[in-house]
Amino acid sequence: MVKVAIAGGSGQVAREVIDALVAANKHEITILSRKAQPISNTTAPGIKWQVVDYNDKPALTEALRGTHTLLSFVQLLSDPGEKSQRNLIDAAIGAGVKRFAPSEYGSKSTIDMPWTYGKGRIVEYLKEVNAKSNVLEYTLFQPGLFLDYLAFPHQTSAHLTPLQTIFDFANRRALVVANHADDAVMTLTSVKDLAAIIARAVDYDCGRWPATGGVRGNRLNFAQVIAMGERVRGRPFKIEKVKVEDLEAGELNTSWGLEAVHHAVSDEEASALLKAVCVGVLLSSTKGAWDSSDEMNRLFPDYEFASAESFLAKVWEGKE
């Protein structure tokens, strides 16, 4: 049993991970949050809720005393300059925390996705603080795209809100980059599987965490995702192809785009960000950004991941 702290513990992915840790019933869990615990939120026995100020590094350090593993789910869009996560890292080192996972939980690379560039800067900071000696063990949990998003608008987990993607199963359509349907790869992992793997990683005591913690639920190229969608949905998809040169110019010449925005994004920012996300995901997919590695799969070879097709067939069965 170890003490686990969850930064940004009121977030959707964080709550999925907390549920997995609670189900394991092995650890003392502290949720760190900027806000007081909601009256409607009742935590399981053994979970402590602690209000923190991420700008107060000494207080953060005290809050982390005795913590073995710190998992960060700080929302990048709400953390300009990555100040909160940098302070968390400094406080973790000062408090003697053994293990840290920064706020990743997505693509392998941030190339062509400027809204994620903060992830890269945090990785560089982790390398910097560990340059002279390994003061803080860390891993980057990278599951690719949540498989649950291909079920949009249907919710498939307890906490993760459905979001649209370039694979629109609801309307039987998809966006692809011309001439890249066969070489652009998308890793698809359910949020439940990610949470289960993180819970196992917290228990892992056979050595250090790998610096990159790729989580590969399903590895499919775009053509395979679309073919799967057509089988699951029972009809052909309407495919719109975009040119690399248009994407590189920031243009999205399609008849449709993303509409469902993350809760952390303001209404004023939504339109521009949704276009940027669509352009960025398409362009980055041609450069391997979503082809997650499999370090965590190899660490836990007995774990069985949800099959993308079986998962989605259950979601879409009987639906128009």
Rank of each mutant, 00 (worst) to 15 (best):
L21T: 08
G94W: 01
P58V: 01
S10R: 12
W49L: 09
P38I: 09
F73R: 03
K57C: 09
D56N: 14
D90T: 09
L32R: 01
I89G: 00
S78D: 13
Q12E: 15
T30P: 02
L64I: 06
F73W: 08
G94K: 00
R34Y: 08
A36L: 11
P45N: 10
P45S: 09
S72G: 07
K57M: 12
T69L: 01
Y54D: 06
A24N: 10
L64Y: 06
R34H: 10
I31W: 01
D79L: 08
D53S: 13
A95C: 04
T43V: 15
G8W: 01
W49D: 10
D79H: 07
R65Q: 12
A59R: 10
T42R: 14
A95V: 04
P58G: 02
N87G: 08
H68V: 02
S10D: 09
G66N: 09
Q75C: 12
K57R: 13
A44S: 13
L88W: 02
A44W: 02
N55L: 12
N25K: 14
K35Q: 13
A7I: 05
S84I: 00
H27G: 02
L76D: 09
L77T: 12
Q37T: 05
Q12I: 03
L60T: 04
P38F: 11
H27T: 03
I93M: 11
D53G: 10
K35S: 14
A63N: 11
N87K: 08
E16M: 15
I93N: 05
Q50A: 11
Y54C: 05
P80W: 11
I31Y: 04
G46S: 06
A23R: 13
A63F: 06
T67A: 11
G9T: 05
G9W: 09
T67M: 04
R65P: 00
T67V: 15
N87P: 10
S10V: 03
V74I: 15
A36N: 11
G94H: 00
V74T: 12
E28L: 04
N41T: 14
G9Y: 07
A95F: 03
V22Y: 05
H68C: 01
I47H: 03
I89K: 06
I29T: 05
A95E: 08
S84N: 14
S84G: 09
D79M: 05
L32A: 06
S40Y: 11
V51H: 10
E62A: 13
Q75R: 11
A91C: 09
H27E: 02
T69K: 00
V22P: 07
L21A: 04
T30C: 10
R65E: 12
L71R: 11
